[in-house]
């Protein structure tokens, strides 16, 4: 590799938090920035699509894409970036798994447009503009980056935490890169990093985070809060559970857990306790679990597009 590694960062359908997350690296960010050459990063430097088009193929060392794929323009851009880059990195939960915007897949594109344009708003070119200046078409569904282009690495999280971004840059800058496909997080579940105690395993009620102030020591699940820790990769240091908030699964499921909803349902089935043993208890346990508000949004908060087929036009 001659000269400094060339870096591109691009933002598709996301909230922008990923772009800001780099700042959390603190002084280390200055180190990183001094060692790379930024060739394309619309949020940071004035670079346009035309600049990108001019670059020779595979001239960018690494491109970090954050955001879900939601428009045709998103797809064009990531294809272009793929062509110009040696490495493409899915950065953040949206690029990794579809992310929170992926929950829109519960409705069809038509339903979404109908809802959004119901007040008269129309997708149209700006006044005096050409047809090609009109906003890009929405895709049928939100999709993770890997649906469209080959992804070499993933830095997960919503947004990625410095504990995950740091190791990625270390690997990139040292040239000591892991095998393709590597996810910069733990293979083991978050509970491994969580200091909360799990002595008396039981789930006797389901509480939403705002409904109680959890005990500072005991596992949140034992207190009725649906913590996705058992099925979610560690690496974040269990920041949320430490602060009394249940894990919502932003780093994504462990490889062994696979579909996080299925794994979590099995786990909850194991933990739930109501009444004495026997058929009556099963019914009571069902009632406890039935009080879980928004199961899809709880179990697939960041990963719906990966595990659930998008709804067709209604």
């Amino acid at each position: 590799m001659r000269g400094k590694p060339k870096l591109a960062v691009y933002w598709t359908g996301g909230c922008g938090g990923c772009d800001v997350s780099f700042l959390e690296l603190g002084p280390a960010l200055l180190d990183v920035l001094s060692q790379v050459e930024i060739v394309f990063w619309p949020a940071l430097v004035d670079t346009k699509r035309a600049d990108l088009e001019e670059l020779p193929p595979r001239s960018i060392t690494a491109t970090l894409v954050n955001g879900t794929l939601r428009t045709e323009e998103n797809v064009e851009m990531v294809r272009l970036l793929r062509e110009k880059s040696q490495l493409v990195v899915a950065f953040g939960a949206c690029a990794h798994l579809g992310g929170v915007p992926g929950l829109a897949n519960l409705a069809s594109r038509e339903e979404i447009l109908r809802t959004v344009t119901g007040n008269g708003f129309r997708l149209a070119p700006p006044p005096g503009g050409d047809a090609e200046d009109s906003p890009p078409e929405l895709l049928g569904a939100a999709r993770p980056l890997a649906d469209e282009v080959a992804v070499d690495y993933t830095v997960p999280g919503c947004p990625p935490m410095p504990s995950l971004i740091g190791p990625f840059f270390e690997a990139l800058l040292s040239g000591d890169l892991p095998d393709p496909g590597h996810v910069f997080a733990q293979e083991q579940a978050l509970c491994k990093e969580c200091p909360r105690t799990r002595e008396d395993r039981k789930l006797t009620k389901v509480l939403r985070p705002h409904e109680a102030l959890p005990d500072p020591q005991e596992c949140l699940l034992d207190q009725g809060m649906i913590c996705m820790g058992p099925v979610t990769r560690g690496g974040c240091g269990a920041a949320c559970p430490k602060a009394g908030m249940p894990c919502t699964g932003c780093v994504g499921p462990t490889p062994e857990a696979g579909d996080p909803a299925l794994a979590m349902i099995a786990a909850l089935g194991s933990l739930v306790r109501a009444g004495d043993e026997g058929p009556a208890a099963f019914a009571a346990e069902d009632r406890v679990l039935d009080t879980l508000v928004d199961p899809l949004g709880t179990f697939y908060k960041y990963s719906l597009p990966v595990y659930v087929r998008a709804r067709r036009a209604a």
Binding site: E187, Q188, A189, L190, C191, K192, R198, E199, R201, K202, C219, G229, P230, G234, T254, E256, A267, S270, L271, R273
Partner: peptide, 19 residues
């Protein structure tokens, strides 16, 4: 692989698993 989540513990009908 084990994260120590102890999901398995209450599942064992014989109390064979300790967290």
């Amino acid at each position: 692989l084990c994260s120590g989540c102890a999901v398995c513990v209450p599942q064992c009908p014989y109390g064979a698993i300790s967290p």
